[in-house]
Computed example of a mutant assay.
Amino acid sequence: MNKQSKALSYLGLAMRAGKLAFGDEGVLGAVRSGQARLVVLAEDASANTRKKFQDKCRHYNVELFECFNRYELGGAIGKEARVLVAVLDSGFAQLIRPCLVKPPEVEPIE
């Protein structure tokens, strides 16, 4: 089992344990309240959603990972399609974090 499959499995376990928030409002509330330990954003999310949650996660110091597509993310948690998922438990976050590849920060070329 590769790392991405493990991450999706752990997200499914976290969902069954009731330790996930999903959807725009659910994730936003979890980030603002300090409950979110990490946020997973689908790669095919809209530009507005991407910018909004990059800014919110940076402001509230929550790690944001952009990976999977909306159908993979939704399928992992037993839903049809989901663009955003927040992990609310630090134990699950520690399991999932090493399985996700964070893209390197790209420096602008001047």
Rank of each mutant, 00 (worst) to 15 (best):
M1F: 11
M1N: 08
K3F: 08
K3D: 14
K3E: 10
K6T: 12
A7T: 09
L8N: 07
L8V: 11
L8F: 07
S9K: 06
Y10D: 06
L11N: 03
L11F: 02
G12K: 00
L13A: 12
A14S: 11
G18E: 04
K19L: 07
L20T: 06
A21F: 07
A21E: 07
A21V: 05
F22A: 05
F22K: 05
G23P: 14
D24S: 14
E25Y: 10
E25R: 11
V27F: 09
V27P: 05
L28V: 07
A30I: 14
A30Y: 12
A30P: 14
A30R: 12
G34N: 09
A36D: 14
A36I: 14
R37G: 11
L38Q: 04
L38P: 06
L41T: 13
A42N: 04
S46H: 07
T49L: 10
K51H: 10
K51A: 14
K52N: 10
F53Y: 13
Q54S: 09
C57E: 10
V62H: 10
E63T: 15
E63F: 05
E66A: 10
C67R: 08
F68R: 04
F68H: 05
N69D: 15
E72N: 09
G74M: 08
G74H: 11
A76P: 12
A76M: 08
A76G: 12
G78I: 04
K79T: 13
A81L: 05
A81G: 08
R82P: 01
R82C: 15
R82E: 15
L84V: 13
V85C: 07
V87S: 04
S90Q: 05
F92T: 00
R97S: 04
P98A: 02
C99E: 05
V101Q: 02
V101R: 02
P103C: 01
E105M: 02
E105C: 01
E105L: 04
E105Q: 03
V106W: 00
V106Y: 00
E107C: 01
I109L: 04
I109M: 02
E110Q: 01
